[in-house]
């Protein structure tokens, strides 16, 4: 059985990610232990909630130092992806700096949070193998990462933004694959198979 380590640092609901993996026959371990995480085969970095509080939780466990140093495949989800960036306007805090992007708040004039099913396009990464252009995935977020050289999937809400980022061994998705039906399950399976 393949093993996945889910970083559990008290930021939001990680049960759904664990259940999604269980449906695929993958055993997941929840931990905030930096030793365990450094020796993991695959790491999922989820997150729901406020960026500043989440960064503080990471720092209190030394995880802000550990995560950027991981050499195994890492998948950031939602706030996890935003914290992997250089800086976020949410609480004006610095992130882990894995991606050099800045996380911005959605402009006024559109409903925030961006919540619900939306399509992804311009997809280009092994994480999206067997996923079609314009597939629908489930989003819940008030801040976004603009398009950049690391963008491997885009979506559109008011303007085009990064639905996924990729650099070296780090993958990250703004949407929730664990809530995105068959498409999301395929993306998680692709991550397991990386």
């Amino acid at each position: 059985m393949k093993r996945v380590t889910i970083i559990d640092y008290g930021a939001g609901n990680v049960a759904s990610v664990k259940y999604a993996l269980a449906r695929m026959g993958v055993e997941a371990e929840l931990t905030s232990d930096s030793d365990v995480i450094l020796n993991a085969e695959k790491v999922i970095f989820p997150g729901v909630g406020h960026a500043a509080a989440a960064m503080q939780a990471l720092q209190s466990k030394g995880l802000d130092l550990v995560i950027p140093r991981l050499k195994c495949p890492v998948l950031g989800i939602c706030l996890g992806m935003q914290l992997m960036c250089n800086h976020t306007e949410e609480g004006e805090v610095d992130g882990l700096g894995i991606f050099s992007e800045k996380v911005l708040r959605f402009n006024k004039g559109i409903k925030v949070p961006h919540m619900g099913w939306n399509t992804i396009f311009k997809i280009s990464a092994p994480l999206f193998d067997a996923v079609s252009e314009h597939s629908s995935v489930y989003f819940v977020h008030s801040y976004y990462v603009p398009l950049s050289e690391n963008t491997v999937a885009a979506s559109y809400y008011g303007s085009a933004f990064s639905a996924a980022l990729q650099k070296d061994n780090f993958d990250a998705v703004q949407f929730h694959p664990e809530k995105s039906g068959a498409v999301g399950a395929q993306i998680l399976q692709n991550f397991i198979d990386l």
Binding site: A15, Y19, A22, R23, H176, E178, K179, A182, G184
Partner: peptide, 8 residues
């Protein structure tokens, strides 16, 4: 339900 389904 959370264990059984993959939608919100």
């Amino acid at each position: 339900v959370a264990q059984a389904i993959n939608i919100p």
